[in-house]
Design a protein around this nucleic acid. Structure first.
Lengths: 239, 239
DNA sequence: CGCCAGTTTGACCAAGATCAACGCAAGTGG
DNA sequence: CCACTTGCGTTGATCTTGGTCAAACTGGCG
């Protein structure tokens, strides 16, 4: 049961103009976005630093500029669940209630934009297009969540790992060589498996020459079709 | 498959149940709601009828007036997954893409309101408050989905069944006597278990006098604290 | 070099799935 | 009215997947 979290992250105060991903990509609503940009603050966090804690106030929402973030929850008896990984361009921390149900942690070195919720609320009322943009972001998240529910509820361990690899392929670089910033424990807690099972299945895939594992954080997809076949059996990739 | 009852439903229909009235409950935006009402159509469906099919167009979204709806997906090899049960007041079919990823079916006799998406889109731009209302609805759904993910990924079978019973208690009548409109198979597919496991665990709860089962569709919560204790161990109820 | 965190592998175990039979109440048709 | 069917639900016996426990391996670093 080793699972420590190192010291805290640090700010780098200045408001920056870092553009990538979810909201910006599908825009065409530039004035609203520029205004949104103006109310954001740029922050940076060290590996394993806590971005916000379970139980804290949800006064802000965030957008990843670079690096990876995990949204997770630790149960009383040590079981952990990772609800989502967020990569550059992804939004997180958009919540309904006033209190965080999950915490957010930096998987590696992370830079994010932080937006005050109240300020966004006002802007959203003035810019219907921004409202729709935000709503679509949330709807996409909801659709992802449904895919993950299907995975956790009805897919076997190999199907889950295959789906995970394909998902990472789609969401990160669409290249044969996949670099995974997160640890095996993170992957296990994301897939609802144990670290040993994840290892064994990756090893099995390696044995079957479906993937290669030059080092633990780098996986090469040698035979993506094989992975897709495994995943297809379970109803298609989540996400 | 469905018959149209009358062109216009009425929102006041079933104010009441705790969880219900997603949109209505927190309103106070009457003009927008009345306008929304005007673009809705009231429909009714027979038990097990399909409200919309996987793969169909997502031109509409819906709100349950009475009865229960299941949002589900059938995999190629027969595995089935139920993403959500919707009871009176709940919205469903709000989606991002143009195509349905899940189907919706009537669990029992159901009456629903149907809203055209395009019409809603226009209204939403004119009524910022409605936009926020809709977004909050989706955010609540997202939060529920996260709870379910935790359950499917990290909770044991007894924890899931306990969580399910408590959830039904909260969402339907908050009375000792719980009537469950759905079948055991529906429950199993919702919890990511098999029908046999659900039966066995319900029987175990009955043996321990935590619940009584006067008939398959009626369960009495004799000892809600015991259920809560079981559920707590797994990180608290989903929803 | 030895230590430490993370990863991998093996042996064994148990939760839950699968397979099979039976119960039971609501139709249905003779 | 009574056999017969049909669709759930329940229970038992057995099997499999993935979890648990334990030990070995690897690469980085003081």
């Amino acid at each position: 049961m080793y699972r420590q979290i190192s010291n805290n992250g640090h700010w780098s105060g200045q408001a920056g103009a870092a553009y990538s991903g979810a909201i910006v990509a599908q825009s065409g609503h530039l004035d609203a976005l520029v205004a949104l940009e103006r109310i954001g603050t740029r922050l940076s966090f060290a590996r394993n630093a806590e971005i916000y804690a379970e139980g804290g106030d949800s006064d802000y929402w965030y957008k990843v500029v670079s690096g990876s973030v995990r949204i997770c929850k630790l149960l009383a008896d040590g079981r952990r669940h990772i609800a989502e990984f967020c990569f550059s361009g992804d939004c997180f921390g958009l919540e309904n209630g006033s209190e965080r149900i999950y915490s957010a942690e930096a998987v590696d070195e992370v830079i994010i934009m932080r937006y005050r919720r109240s300020a966004t609320e006002q802007m959203v009322d003035q810019h219907p297009s921004l409202a729709r943009l935000l709503r679509d972001t949330v709807l996409r998240e909801l659709s992802n969540a449904h895919g993950r529910m299907l995975m956790l509820g009805r897919m076997t361990a190999p199907e889950r790992v295959a789906a995970f690899l394909l998902q990472m392929y789609e969401r990160r670089a669409r290249t044969k060589v996949l670099d995974l910033p997160m640890s095996r424990i993170d992957i296990a807690d994301y897939l609802g498996l144990t670290i040993e099972t994840v290892c064994r299945i990756l090893s099995a895939f390696k044995r079957e020459e479906v993937i290669a594992i030059p080092n633990p954080h780098r996986i090469e997809l040698l035979d993506r079709c094989a992975l897709e076949a495994i995943n297809e059996a379970g109803g298609g990739a989540a996400i």
